[in-house]
C-alpha cells in the first residue's frame, strides 16, 4: 500500500517537473524578446531605418544593411528555388531506385547538416577568389544559395512524396507523358508544401552571419547597392558588428537591428503558415 503511494507520488512529481521545465523553456523565448525589446525600442525610429552606419551611435542606422539583406534574399531565391525544386523533382519523380540515387540523398542530408561557416570557406575560395567576384552581392547570394539548396531539396521532396499516387496514375492513364504528369499535375499539388519549405529555408539563410563575414561582407557601407556587382552589408552582419563593440550605445543599436530582423523573419514565417493553411488543396 505504501509502496503504491510512493510510486504514484513519483509519477505526479515527475509530471510537475516536466511541466515546470516546459514552461521555463518557453519563457526563455519571452525573456529574450522582452530583453531585446527593452534595449532596442528606444533606438528604433525613422532616423534609424533611414541612415547609414556611423561612428556616432545617435546618427547610425541600418539603411544599407536592410537593403543589402533584401537584395541578398531576392538573388538567393532566384538561384536556389529553381535548382532545389528541380533536384527534388528529379529525385522523387525521375530517378531510378538505385544505390547511387540513395548516395546522392545521403549526401544532401549531410550538406544540410554542414556548419554554415564551411559554406563561407567554400564561397571565399570559389566565388571571391577563384571566380574573382570579390565581396559583391554575387558572392554573397551564391554562397547563401548553396546553403539553402539542401534544405529546399529535402522540404520539396517531402511535399512531392505527399502527393497521392492516384493523381499520377490518372494522368498516365489519359496518355500524358512524364513531363506532362510532373509539371501539369504533381507539381501544382505539391506547390503549397514546396512554398512553405522554400520560405523557411530562405528565412534561415536571411539570418546567416558567419558565411557573409567569411566572404568579406563589410559592415561599413555608406551607400545602397545598385547592381549585383556592388559590395554590400546585411542585417545580421551589421548586428554582429554593433554587438561586438564594448559601448552600451552600440548594444542598443544592435538590439534595434535585431528587432527589425525579427520583424522581417516573422513576416516571412507568417506567410509560410498562411500558405500552408489556405492554399493546401490536398490535405493528407
Amino acid at each position: 500500500m505504501i509502496n503504491r503511494r510512493i510510486r504514484s507520488l513519483k509519477n505526479r512529481t515527475f509530471v510537475w517537473v516536466c511541466r515546470g521545465v516546459t514552461a521555463a523553456m518557453i519563457s526563455v523565448l519571452f525573456i529574450l524578446l522582452y530583453h531585446v525589446g527593452q534595449e532596442g525600442i528606444g533606438w528604433l525610429d525613422k532616423q534609424f531605418l533611414d541612415s547609414f552606419p556611423s561612428r556616432f551611435p545617435e546618427k547610425a542606422g541600418i539603411k544599407s544593411a536592410l537593403w543589402g539583406s533584401v537584395w541578398l534574399i531576392g538573388m538567393t531565391a532566384t538561384f536556389s528555388i529553381p535548382l532545389g525544386v528541380a533536384t527534388a523533382v528529379y529525385l522523387e519523380e525521375y530517378a531510378p531506385r538505385k544505390i547511387w540515387v540513395r548516395a546522392i540523398e545521403i549526401n544532401i542530408g549531410n550538406l544540410a547538416g554542414m556548419p554554415s561557416i564551411l559554406y563561407g570557406l567554400l564561397g571565399l575560395a570559389i566565388f571571391v577568389r577563384f571566380m574573382g567576384l570579390e565581396d559583391s552581392l554575387w558572392s554573397g547570394s551564391l554562397t547563401l544559395s548553396l546553403l539553402a539548396l539542401p534544405v529546399i531539396v529535402i522540404a520539396s521532396q517531402g511535399a512531392l512524396r505527399a502527393v497521392p499516387r492516384e493523381i499520377r496514375e490518372g494522368a498516365y492513364a489519359l496518355g500524358a507523358r512524364r513531363w506532362q504528369v510532373v509539371f501539369g499535375h504533381v507539381l501544382p499539388c505539391a506547390l503549397p508544401g514546396i512554398m512553405t519549405g522554400v520560405i523557411l529555408a530562405l528565412s534561415r539563410s536571411m539570418g546567416e552571419t558567419a558565411p557573409l563575414i567569411m566572404i568579406g561582407a563589410l559592415s561599413y557601407v555608406a551607400f545602397l547597392p545598385e547592381t549585383p556587382s556592388d559590395p554590400f552589408t546585411a542585417l545580421p552582419v551589421q548586428i554582429f558588428n554593433w554587438a561586438a563593440r564594448p559601448q552600451a550605445n552600440f548594444h542598443g543599436l544592435a538590439a534595434a537591428g535585431i528587432l527589425v530582423l525579427l520583424a522581417l523573419l516573422l513576416t516571412l514565417n507568417a506567410s509560410a503558415v498562411f500558405i500552408r493553411e489556405k492554399l493546401q488543396r490536398y490535405k493528407p
Binding site: 516546459t22 523553456m25 518557453i26 526563455v28 523565448l29 525573456i31 529574450l32 530583453h35 531585446v36 534595449e39 523557411l200 528565412s203 534561415r204 536571411m206 539570418g207 546567416e208 552571419t209 558567419a210 545580421p236 548586428i239 554582429f240 554587438a243 548594444h251 544592435a254 538590439a255 535585431i258 530582423l261 525579427l262 523573419l265 514565417n269
Partner: peptide
C-alpha cells in the same frame, strides 16, 4: 508547445550571441 520550439529554432544565431553577451 511545438510552435514555440519552432520559433526558438528560427531565431538567428547572432541574436543568441547578443542575448548571451548582454543578458
Amino acid at each position: 508547445v511545438k510552435p514555440f520550439l519552432e520559433i526558438l529554432v528560427g531565431i538567428p544565431t547572432v541574436v543568441y550571441g547578443y542575448f548571451a553577451l548582454t543578458f
